[in-house]
Design a binder for these strands. Structure first.
Lengths: 257, 257
DNA sequence: ACCTGAACACCGTTCAAGT
DNA sequence: ACCTGAACACCGTTCAAGT
């Protein structure tokens, strides 16, 4: 029972912060956040804890580095290939993050904790920049850049979090058991809610069962994009119909600083 | 040094799950997630760990209960007073959650983790139901209920998470130090980013400094609401301008199950 | 039924000592 | 400069024993 488990052979190449972060991501992917311990890490890297602490200050920094690495990889997929419309670019960036949370179910919760720990870190600007460039390209007036980009980022983070939740739970149901079974379970659970307290949720339970996560996510993106486009001055479209929305007077002030 | 610390006098009333959850929330509020330990809990409640385990299965369940209690309280603020428009109701619900994450900075990250652990739990349906009823009231066609409500919920969760991040960090800067100092720090940090890598973020750094979180949050809500309203069949508004968006053919399929 | 509190396994972190 | 590994403080959880 004391034989080598996993790949704990003998280490040939030297230790490095990079290799440690890489191993941390692998551990997180395979056994979740509780699976990332210094014991498991030392075993996998065939060292002692002191060696790891030489390259990394503590576990928090290690988690942050793992999160940052995964986010950076997700945003770097397309160097500068596709020329598509700004809308398509937004969808591509968003989908990249969405798929990253699918591959790494621990990512979403970790993003939330990391942002609350260190919001001036590198991961928030990374996402913000990728989305913001497209907002600018959409022709949104500068006074609304921050609002529009924030809204996009918030939607993406929220939706990615929810998706990670579903992916993780679907896996927890057992290997091989697919998303279909999981969605079926949620749908059934929602159908079983109290009719007095949850009429709407019950009414919608059926749509849960056979929706496609990705389609759903992109539909939400389009919804936000529609709202963002409405921030732009009307080009040649219908100038009417706008004042029907409630008191838009002081809500979106023009940039005047 | 062995004198009673805090309120560890003698317990008069009996222990209960409710009292334990309440104490847990207080500990989380005052000292963050790492402050919630069974030792601190037993001291505050003047018992032993075994007593707590009689009422609560484990720490995970305790965290879930604390999260659920706080979310339920946030959504229950207005029993049925305000008659306002659906839009105003959405803003009220969203603001309730937003303020809850301000009061309880641990909430957002905890929500993410809990949803990923147990998405068929009670907290997701609670939020979903509150928002969904207003979506229905907005006249959104039934086939889009799930998409629209999900988008709202994702935005709210993402934005609340970001806000909790900011609130928490602002507090960490020191008691008394306000949001202004914190925003100034973030703004300065963004202005110091690499001009080649982060042109957009740098350009927007100024808007970070003097934005109002709540205004920003509500502006995002309105943006999503605009997108949602566009899902409704045009009442008497301009029927043109819609086919300009890309392949909307199969994107929002009508309900046909 | 409800509570006590010692005990256990495990975890993050440190540090004197090695090369 | 980089690594080893024993040791420490702390944490979640258990459980025989009490009332």
């Amino acid at each position: 029972m004391a034989t080598r488990t996993g790949r704990s052979q003998r280490r040939t190449d030297a230790l490095s912060r990079e290799r440690i972060v890489e191993a941390a991501v692998e551990l997180l992917d395979t056994s979740g956040e509780s699976g990332l311990t210094f014991r498991a890490l030392t075993e996998r890297l065939a060292t002692g804890p002191g060696a790891i602490y030489w390259h990394v200050a503590n576990k928090t920094e290690l988690l942050d580095a793992a999160t940052d690495a995964v986010v950076a990889a997700a945003l770097a997929v397309r160097p500068s290939e596709s020329p598509g419309s700004p809308q398509d670019e937004v969808r591509a960036v968003a989908l990249g993050l969405f798929e990253a949370t699918e591959e790494h179910p621990w990512l979403a919760a970790q993003l939330a904790t990391q942002l609350s720990r260190n919001p001036s870190g590198t991961v928030a600007p990374r996402i913000f920049e990728s989305l913001g460039r497209q907002v600018r390209a959409l022709g949104v007036p500068e006074g609304h850049w921050f609002t529009a980009t924030s809204a996009l980022m918030h939607y993406v983070l929220g939706a990615a979090g929810q998706n990670a939740a579903n992916t993780g739970s679907a896996r927890a149901l057992g290997p091989g058991t697919g998303r279909a079974e999981f969605l079926d379970a949620v749908s059934t659970a929602w159908e079983g809610l109290d009719p007095g307290d949850y009429p709407f949720t019950r009414a919608v339970a059926g749509q849960v069962r056979d929706h496609d996560d990705r389609e759903q996510f992109l539909a939400g993106i389009d919804l936000v994009l529609t709202g963002i486009t409405a921030l732009s001055p009307p080009r040649e479209a219908s100038p009417a119909e706008k004042p029907s929305r409630r008191g838009g007077a002081g809500r979106y002030p023009p940039p005047d600083e």
